[in-house]
Design a protein around this nucleic acid. Structure first.
Lengths: 181, 181
DNA sequence: GTCTATATAGGGATAGAC
DNA sequence: GTCTATCCCTATATAGAC
């Protein structure tokens, strides 16, 4: 089931909501169209929601977990950056929620999207507060972090240069810690 | 024809390439499906290309033009920010090319997209060079500008808060001129 | 230059056998 | 839990009248 969700997620990320046809989803999972309806009775909308929940868990495990535990703030942020690069496969994979924004899955996914962005900003700003940043600064830098990650994915795809995504993400710890250590 | 292209562009920006059905395009323009084929013999792919060229001109007129002529670098950059906010309707409208990236118009639009991003980076870095920035700094800040604009559009849409887009764009001149005046 | 009508393919979704 | 077969709808695209 984990594997099916990953395969479905890939299709959504590559083609957007409208472009994720049952044929493509069927091909990606190796399941017949009808079998997909066994797992997801409400069809595509169902799959999109399941994938959103699945991705949210993965982000927690692979990215946010790096901000907790031992180590200096800088070490945590560098782990955070590594987690992001892994998660987006070095810039080769799109953000699922960003892909949904631009293709009409909006209605069903509006809440998950909002909560996801809010959580990113909270997590990043919290660690900056702990490092001694003022609240305004922490919030501004956290928002900037999310913007740059999303933007860097688009730029990397436009330039057909995934490396530029990695470059941007590796810059984040320095930007976030400016004047704090 | 200008008007038709604007109407078509809106559909692509709202629904992405796959979501821009001929029915929607027909409704948006007031033209019958068949009439659209009169103007764009190759159908959707044709429209997407025409819109890309049209948008490129608009960006030139409404945004990049602000970086030329009289005034201090700061004044130019503030005009630039205003142009961006107008162009994206205060964060309410998506970027056409970003919408295409995530929905399969890729093949046809790969080159326009690449040229567009490259031009943004060139234009912004050039004005920083003129203001005395080192080349590395200018390029990094220019890339960051494009990333933040793209990212801010996604964040604004996710949070259902167009205002946050405007806030980010208004921050750009300060960020770009840091240490240069 | 716009329309009606239509051809053909593929979309999402369900029934029922195994 | 997966399949084949099928339904209905919408999509893209074209022909030809006006």
């Amino acid at each position: 089931m984990e594997e099916i969700l990953d395969q479905i997620a890939d299709v959504f990320r590559r083609h957007g909501y409208e472009g994720a046809t049952l044929s493509r989803l069927s091909a990606a999972t190796g399941l017949g169209r009808a079998s997909l309806y066994h797992h997801f009775p409400d069809g595509k909308a169902d799959m999109a929601q399941a994938v959103a929940a699945h991705m949210s868990q993965n982000v927690m495990k692979q990215i946010f977990s790096r901000l907790e535990g031992e180590g200096s703030t800088r070490q945590k942020l560098e782990g955070f950056a590594s987690g992001i690069i892994e998660f987006y496969d070095g810039g080769a994979k799109n953000c699922f929620l960003a892909a949904m924004t631009l293709t009409g899955g909006n209605t069903v996914l509006a809440e998950p999207m909002q909560r996801s962005v809010t959580r990113w900003i909270e997590k990043v700003s919290r660690i900056l507060l702990e490092a001694g940043a003022e609240e305004k600064v922490a919030l501004r830098r956290a928002r900037m972090t999310v913007e740059r990650i999303q933007g860097a994915l688009i730029v990397a795809r436009s330039l057909n240069d995934p490396q530029s995504f990695e470059t941007t993400v590796r810059e984040l710890p320095d930007m976030l810690l400016q004047g704090l250590e």
